[in-house]
C-alpha cells in the first residue's frame, strides 16, 4: 500500500507542470484567475508570479513609496494563499506602463520565460475591451509577444551565451475580469485563435477569497472610493457605513462571488473563471485538429 502511494505521488510529480503567471498589478491575477491557479497548485503544479507594476498608486491614504512596500508584502501573501511558490517583481510604476518601451517590457518577460521554462503561461488578455486599467492591456501585449520571442534563438542571443536557452510554452491562458460585453462571442476557429474556456472554481474559491482579502491596501482603497462616490451623491451603502477589516472582507467576498457567478452563467458550474486558451493544438490548423 505504501509503495502504491509512493508510486502515485511519483506519477503526480512527473505530470506536474510549471506555471508562470504574468500580472500587471497585485489584484488582477487573483480576481480573474486565482481560483484556477489555486486548483492547479493543489494538484502539484509549481507556480511563479511575475508582477510587472508596483501598485504604488492604489492606496487610500499612503504615500507612493509606502503603498508600493505594503502592496508588495500583501501580494506575497496573496500568492502564498494560492499556492504560488515565488513572486518576482519587475518594479515598474503603476499606471505608467503606457510610457514604457513595449520591447523592453517584452524582453524582460521573455527572460523569465526562458529562465523558468514554464509549461503553462497565464497572461492578462490584451484584447479584453473596456478594461479600465490599461497597464493590464500593455502587460498582456508584451507577454503575448514574449511567449513567442522566448522561443526564438535570435532574440536576445546573449541569454543563450549564458545558458538561458529559448523555450516554447505549450499552454497559454489569457485572463480578464468579465467586463468586455463581447468576451464570449465566438472568434474564428482558425489556426492561432485561442478559444474561450470556462473553468469551475468551487473547490478553490476559499483560497481565492483568502488571496483577495490579503490585498488589504488595495481592497480598502476600493471600498473607500465606493463610499466616497456614494457620499458625494447623497447615497450610502450600509455595509460601508464603517470601513474596517470586517466590512472590507465582506465586500471582497461579495465581489468574488459576483465575478464567479458571472463567469459561470450558462455553464454547469456555480462558480467559474473564464479565459481564452491556446493549448498544445493551438498551431494545428482547425480542420486537422480532430
Amino acid at each position: 500500500m505504501k509503495s502504491l502511494l509512493c508510486l502515485l505521488a511519483f506519477a503526480a510529480a512527473a505530470n506536474s507542470k510549471t506555471i508562470l503567471i504574468v500580472t500587471a498589478d497585485a489584484a488582477d491575477f487573483v480576481l480573474a484567475a486565482g481560483g484556477t491557479i489555486a486548483s492547479m497548485t493543489a494538484t502539484g503544479d509549481r507556480a511563479i508570479l511575475l508582477r510587472v507594476a508596483n501598485d504604488d498608486k492604489n492606496a487610500w491614504d499612503l504615500a507612493p513609496e509606502q503603498a508600493a512596500a505594503r502592496t508588495s508584502a500583501e501580494c506575497e501573501q496573496a500568492a502564498r494563499a494560492l499556492g504560488i511558490e515565488k513572486v518576482v517583481s519587475l518594479g515598474y510604476r503603476e499606471g505608467e506602463l503606457g510610457g514604457v518601451s513595449p520591447t523592453e517590457l517584452r524582453d524582460r518577460i521573455a527572460f523569465h520565460i526562458r529562465l523558468l521554462k514554464p509549461d503553462v503561461l497565464f497572461i492578462p488578455n490584451p484584447y479584453a475591451e473596456y478594461v479600465e486599467q490599461l497597464d493590464r492591456h500593455y502587460t498582456g501585449m508584451a507577454a503575448e509577444e514574449a511567449r513567442h520571442t522566448a522561443a526564438l534563438r535570435n532574440h536576445q542571443p546573449p541569454l543563450a551565451a549564458i545558458g538561458v536557452e529559448p523555450h516554447v510554452t505549450r499552454e497559454l491562458y489569457y485572463y480578464a475580469q468579465p467586463v468586455d460585453p463581447r468576451r464570449r462571442e465566438p472568434e474564428a476557429a482558425a489556426t492561432f485563435v485561442p478559444q474561450p474556456k470556462v473553468v469551475g472554481i468551487e473547490a478553490a474559491f476559499s483560497k481565492k477569497l483568502r488571496a483577495a482579502r490579503a490585498l488589504k491596501t488595495i481592497q480598502t482603497a476600493a471600498a473607500m472610493r465606493i463610499r466616497q462616490r456614494l457620499e458625494s451623491t447623497g447615497r450610502r451603502l450600509p455595509l460601508l457605513d464603517t470601513v474596517n477589516e470586517e466590512s472590507v472582507n465582506k465586500l471582497v467576498e461579495i465581489e468574488l462571488r459576483g465575478l464567479a457567478t458571472l463567469c459561470a452563467k450558462d455553464f454547469p458550474y456555480k462558480m467559474a473563471e473564464e479565459f481564452h486558451y491556446a493549448g498544445p493544438e493551438y498551431q494545428v490548423p482547425a480542420k486537422l485538429r480532430r
Partner: peptide, 24 residues
Amino acid sequence: FYYLGEFDHLPGLTGYLRDNVVKR
C-alpha cells in the same frame, strides 16, 4: 454611444450595489 457607468469597472459588484445602495 458606448456608455460606461459609475461602477461598471467593478463587474462583480454592480448587481450588489444596484440592489443595496440607499439614499442618505
